[in-house]
Amino acid sequence: MNAAVNAISNAAAETSVQSVNRQPLGARVGIPPRRVALDLKHSDAGYWYANDPFLTYYWSAFSILLPEGEQFFVEAVRHYRDQITDENLKAGIAGFIGQEALHTQGHQVLNKFIEDKNLPAAEIEAQLRVLLDTAAKIHPRLSLAATICLEHFTALLGEQLLVEEDHHNSVNEDIKPLWMWHALEETEHKAVAWDVYEQTGGSYAVRAGTMVVTTAVLGAVMAYATARLLHADGKLLDVRNNWRGFKSLFGRQGRMTRLAPKFLDFFRPGFHPNDHDTKALVAEWRERLFGVNGEVNHLLKGRVVH
């Protein structure tokens, strides 16, 4: 947790550097850090996704992984930042670091909410920290390759959450702002780590091979974390509900299964994240969340930046 807190402090310092029009650097390239202050102290949300234990704990597991995961992303990109000469990409890196650090802060609030229900969120996070610290010691190039793999996942998940109305309407209203804000910003900065990887000599073979390993590890970690949460709540042996929830994600027409074609695009040698055109989607949700009558404006700290 200390590492994630340090990332927030470092990012706050970096994003305080402003351009001539006094906007954060990332805003120049459409990646503005926005501080959304989620407060769940008085929330009575129980099973906060579709009132379903399995699905709630699946997405809770994802939230628990995010603070340490995003710290890993930030460090992987920061390591190569001095090699970047393109001014727009430099601004994009500043926006990426700022956004990821603030996402960490938001998910720490949700993770504390989960922990307070006598669920092992902190223990799972500590175990993930050991895994990521070990991975980070292998080689900076592999850390950056793993980052673009995981950013591909988060971009696809973010796009899906924005597009599919039944998906985002399944999230409890107290918690929904966190996920919609995060989904928008993952979509905004989806190409930053990729461009850093390519501009610093990253190869196709390394990124493709890393994706195979990363997918397997992420799947195992998500299965373990979800099972731990279900077990802590006495729901692990609720076979009927768990199977129904699993099928809704990974069945023939499951939510995650439907992402497969776009996921597999990653393995095309000439692929770039912007091949998945989300400009109109980003514009729509910037207005919905942070426009004049934005749904999340009441939680914003500081000036609204589209």
Results as ranks from 00 to 15, higher is better:
1 M>H: 13
16 S>H: 11
20 V>Y: 15
20 V>C: 13
23 Q>M: 13
25 L>F: 00
28 R>W: 02
29 V>Q: 05
39 D>P: 02
44 D>Q: 13
45 A>K: 06
47 Y>A: 02
69 G>K: 04
69 G>C: 08
71 Q>P: 07
74 V>D: 12
79 H>K: 11
81 R>I: 03
86 D>H: 06
94 A>I: 02
94 A>L: 08
107 H>W: 03
107 H>E: 06
110 L>E: 04
111 N>K: 08
118 N>M: 08
127 Q>K: 14
127 Q>N: 14
128 L>G: 11
130 V>Q: 15
131 L>F: 14
140 P>V: 07
144 L>P: 13
147 T>Y: 15
152 H>D: 06
153 F>T: 03
154 T>R: 13
156 L>K: 01
156 L>W: 00
161 L>G: 05
166 D>I: 03
175 I>H: 03
177 P>H: 03
181 W>Y: 14
196 V>P: 12
205 A>V: 08
208 A>K: 11
208 A>D: 07
211 M>T: 03
220 A>C: 02
222 M>P: 02
223 A>L: 12
224 Y>K: 14
232 A>M: 09
248 S>V: 01
258 R>M: 02
264 L>M: 13
267 F>C: 05
269 P>M: 04
269 P>K: 01
273 P>T: 01
285 W>Y: 14
289 L>F: 01
289 L>D: 05
295 E>S: 14
301 K>P: 04
